[in-house]
Amino acid sequence: MMLEIADVDLHYGAAIALRSVSLQATRGEVTCLLGRNGVGKTSLLRAVIGAHPVTRGAIRWEGEDITRLATYDRARRGIAYVPQGRDIFPLLTVAENLETGFAVLARGARRVPDEIFDLFPVLKTMLRRRGGDLSGGQQQQLAIARALITRPRLLVLDEPTEGIQPSVIKDIGRVIRLLRSRGEMAILLVEQYFDFARDLSQSIAVMERGAIVLAGRAEELDHADVRRRLSV
C-alpha cells in the first residue's frame, strides 16, 4: 500500500511553504525527507496527517483521496504521527498516553500488546508516571509506542532523534529497522541527521525552500551532494 503526495502546494496565509511537492512512501520501506531548518519538511508532514490544509494538489493513501479528510479520520485509516517535540499529553500518565491509542481500535482489541514493552522496556517501569515528567528520550519512546498502539500502516516520524542522547537514538533506530523489516507499514521519516537516515532508508528526498530538489533510492544518490544541501 502506498502514500502518494501529488503536486501539493501549501500556504500559511499569504506565504507559500510547499511548492508542487510530489512524494511516495511504500509499504515495507523507510522513506526519508531531508533538509535544513525551515525548508518545509514539517509542513509536508502536517499536510499528510491533515493538520493543515493544502492549497493545491492531492494526497492519496491506499488508493483513497484523503486530501480533504480530517486528521482523526486519517488516523482511523491507519496513519500514525510522531511529531517533532513528541507532544506527549503532559498530565496523562504513561499508561493513559498509550491508551489514547485505543480510540481507533475495535473494542475487543483495546489492550497494550506486550510487544510494545519488548520494544521499549523502560516504559513498563513508568506506567504511573505523568507524561510531562519524563525525560526527552523517554518521551520519544513513549510517542513512538503510542503511535504503534494504533496498529498503523503508515508511520510518520518528524525528527525523532532531535535532542535525544545517542544511546536512545540507537534504540530508536533499531525499532525503526525492526518495523521496516516486518514489512507491514510504510514509514515516512523526516531527519536532519543524514547518517542516521542513510542507514535506515530505502528512498530519500531532499527539500529546499518548499520544493523537492533531489530524490531517489538511497543507494543511487550522491551522498556528497546531499550533505552539501543539508549543511548551513
Binding site: 496527517i49 491533515g50 493538520a51 480530517a70 486528521t71 482523526y72 488516523a75 482511523r76 500514525a80 504521527y81 511529531p83 507532544d87 499529553f89 503532559p90 498530565l91 496523562l92 493513559e96 491508551e99 489514547t100 491509542g101 480510540a103 481507533v104 503510542r146 494504533t150
Partner: peptide, 17 residues
Amino acid sequence: LKMRAVTQNRAMAAAMG
C-alpha cells in the same frame, strides 16, 4: 480520557484518532 487528551493537546488528540 479523550476529554483530557483534547484539553491538553487538541491537535495530537486528533492525530490519535
